[in-house]
Amino acid sequence: MISLRGVSKAYPRSGDALRGVSFRLRKGEFAFLTGPSGAGKSTVLELIHFQTRPTEGEVQVSRYNSRRVRRRDIPALRRRVGFVFQDFKLLERLTAAENVAFALEVIGTPRREIAGRVQRLLSQVGLAARARSRPSELSGGERQRVAVARALATEPRILLADEPTGNLDPDAAGGVFELFRMLNRLGTAVLMATHDADFVRRHPDVRRLELEDGRLARDSAA
């Protein structure tokens, strides 16, 4: 489903972000991408989301290959790969329901279907009761759930999460993580980047991909 083969990424100013990283994430798999800040976790996620291209090597996501992908195919790829951020990236002027509806509208969902799908998505993340609240009226954990509902709007097969619990208290972080586990059980592959070593240690059953200084130092599945 996701495959990185000998991927290196260098930026003109900051130099090498990744060096020769290779791993595969299979359909329906769950993995942590760990490592200290600056290890290259966000770069890996951006490469899988085709926000950037490798300097060397190749990234394969479903049938899309970084060497051969056409510019016009990238939106279709991104609909298969949901993305959740540490800072949620919700639009403050919109309610929780409108934030989710925005994503559905953007991908061309027929108007008559949007309201029903928003309700289902918010129910799925346990936030049906807060549909009319604006992000400023929600807790951190609730905001992240809205962000997850939005990411699920395109019915992705893969969910990428970049430090999704970084701004949350332990209870809220645990709740969001359980939401990811539930989505994973329903068949969505999840790759969650985190630098929180304690959090990772508390879930030893989850595969761990450890990055250090741009290299893949350890893969618990290997």
Partner: peptide, 16 residues
């Protein structure tokens, strides 16, 4: 900018 970034993330087409 914020809206455009979200559109790009969720898979809006460039023309849209």
């Amino acid at each position: 900018g914020e809206e455009i970034e979200i559109m790009q993330i969720v898979g809006a087409r460039e023309g849209y």
